[in-house]
Amino acid sequence: MTPSSRVKTLTIDGRPVSARSGETILKVARENNIFIPTLCHMDGLSPVGACRLCLVEIKGSSKLVPACITSIFEGMEVSTKSEQLDKYRKMILALLFSERNHVCSVCVSNGHCELQTLAQTLGLEHVHVPYLYPVMDVDASHERFVSDHSRCVLCTRCVRVCEEIEGAHTWDIMGRGAEAKIISDLNQPWGFSESCTSCGKCVHVCPTGALFEAGKSTAEMTKRQFLPYLSLMRGEKND
C-alpha cells in the first residue's frame, strides 16, 4: 500500500481537509485549527471519551460521536457546531458544576482552570439544574499535595497519567454514578499510600483545583505542561 492511499479526505464544518487513516476527528480538527471543546482528553494519555464535551455530528448518522475516540473515514462530513451540540455541551458543564462544589473565587486554580475556561468559552451563564451541594472531603494527608473532591470532575486524567506514565497506578475510581470518587490505593488517605511516588504528575494534569500543591493560596496553582516533552523524549510517534 502506498502512503498516498492512506490519505483520506473529509469535511469539517464544510471545510475540506485531508488526514491520515486512523486519525481521530479531534486530532484532524486541531491540526486545522478547528476548535472542539475537551475536558478528559489530554495529548499523551490514552483517550477515554468520558466527558462527552467533544461530541460532534456526522452526516448520515443520527448518533453524536465523541471526536476524541472516533476515527475519520473517507468522505466523512463532520459538524462541530450546531444548536444541538451547543445545548448538550452546556448541559454537560451545568451537570459538572451542579454535581460538586465549585467555588471559583476562592479556588487555588481560579484563572487557570479548564472547567472555568470552558464555561466562559461556551458561554455557560447559568446552571439550570439544582445544585447537589454534596459534603465532600478534602484529603490533606499527603506531605506535598492536597486533593479536594469538591472540585473533581472525574475526568480520570490523574488515573491515566499515574498508570500510563508514572507506572504507579496509585489512583483509581471507586463507586458508580454520583457516588463515583477518585481514590488512592485501596481508598486510603493519600499520605498513607504505599504506591504513590510523590511525582506530582497527577497534580499537573488535573484540569481543575481538585489536586493541588499544599500551601498554595487562591489563584496560585498553575499547572505545568510536561506531557508533550515527555512524549518527545520517549520518541513516541506523533500518531
Partner: peptide
C-alpha cells in the same frame, strides 16, 4: 469547617 486553612484569607 473542613477546608484547608490556606484558603481562609480569600474566604
Amino acid at each position: 469547617e473542613g477546608r484547608p486553612f490556606t484558603e481562609m484569607p480569600s474566604v
